[in-house]
Design a protein around this nucleic acid. Structure first.
Length: 276
DNA sequence: AGCATTCCCTGTAAGC
DNA sequence: TGCTTACAGGGAATGC
């Protein structure tokens, strides 16, 4: 599942594939992927040129000429790949951007959870959910003070709080389990009960893990691939996610898996402290 | 208002 | 073997 390191890897791999290309036409094989007006999406993108790709948290921002931006969220299994336009459509290809050079960018998504919207460049925060997002890991705004003050108001458990994109934006289920294990914090800990020094430690772990995972081109579990079809390299570094029933690498206690608000959650019942 | 639950989706694996 | 059920989960919508 693409989280911030994976989305950044997609962004970097996609730029050389599509930057400078001009869209000839757009096909919606599964129209509901487009959350904005679907006929406008198809109509307004014709003759537009890709000028760059930005990203905020897990959102890709494909910048186009004439002040247009496609905001794209991959959700669980969304992928982009560039093909010759004559390549037969894959069963799970849902959107095609055909370019003037006989290539096409295809959006493929087995579970059809991903969404894209066409907006005016600059209206990201008002026209999409980006406006409700919190700060990104490793950004100047993600300070100890910010993190401590945000957690201080939260009665819900820390696992759920870290998945809440309005506080820190970019973490998903995998990295949340990893950073909580690193900071030795039990996922069911009450957010506001976590001592300030542990919150500081958690912030450092978040920053370091996101940075390191990005350097390794993300984590491939299940099906994540970048725009060139390459796997990530961080799955080998995971200490807890996907390792329930195995020994904790720190204390050798068997790792447990529970459900926290519907999310599979793996943790060490011995060395991860629960704050109540 | 804040927190929890439901829903969207389909492939894979387990159970009978 | 073939069917049903459980599970994977990000974020919007809904419920309390």
């Amino acid at each position: 599942m693409p989280e911030m390191p994976e989305v950044e890897t997609v962004r970097r791999s996609l730029i050389p594939l599509i930057k400078g290309k001009t869209i000839k036409n757009v096909t919606l094989w599964y129209p509901n992927i487009v959350a904005s007006d679907q006929s406008e999406f198809v109509h307004d993108l014709v003759n537009k040129k890709v000028i760059g790709i930005d990203r905020y948290a897990k959102y890709l921002l494909i910048r186009l000429s004439d002040n247009l931006t496609i905001v794209s969220h991959l959700r669980m299994e969304g992928k982009y790949h560039l093909v010759d336009v004559d390549t037969p459509k894959d069963k799970h290809d849902h959107v095609q951007f055909e370019f003037t050079d006989h290539t096409a960018l295809r959006y493929n998504d087995v579970r059809k959870f991903g969404r894209m919207q066409l907006i005016l460049t600059g209206s990201e925060k008002t026209a999409t959910a980006i406006g409700r997002l919190g700060v990104e890991p490793n950004s100047a705004d993600f300070t100890d003070q910010y993190f401590i003050s945000k957690l201080k108001t939260k009665k819900k458990n820390i696992k759920n709080t870290l998945l809440d994109q309005t506080i820190v934006a970019g973490l998903g289920n995998i990295y949340v389990d990893e950073v909580l294990w690193q900071a030795k914090i039990h996922p069911l800990s009450v957010s506001r009960a976590i001592p300030a020094d542990k919150v500081k430690e958690l912030r450092k772990n978040i920053n370091h893990t996101i940075k390191w995972a990005t350097e390794l081109h993300g984590t491939t579990v299940h099906t994540y691939l970048d725009a060139n079809g390459n796997y990530g390299g961080f799955q080998d570094k995971l200490k807890v996610y996907g390792h329930s029933g195995e020994e904790c690498p720190r204390c050798n206690t068997i790792l447990e898996k529970i459900k926290v608000n519907g999310r599979g959650t793996t943790f060490c019942p011995h060395c991860q402290v629960i704050y109540k």
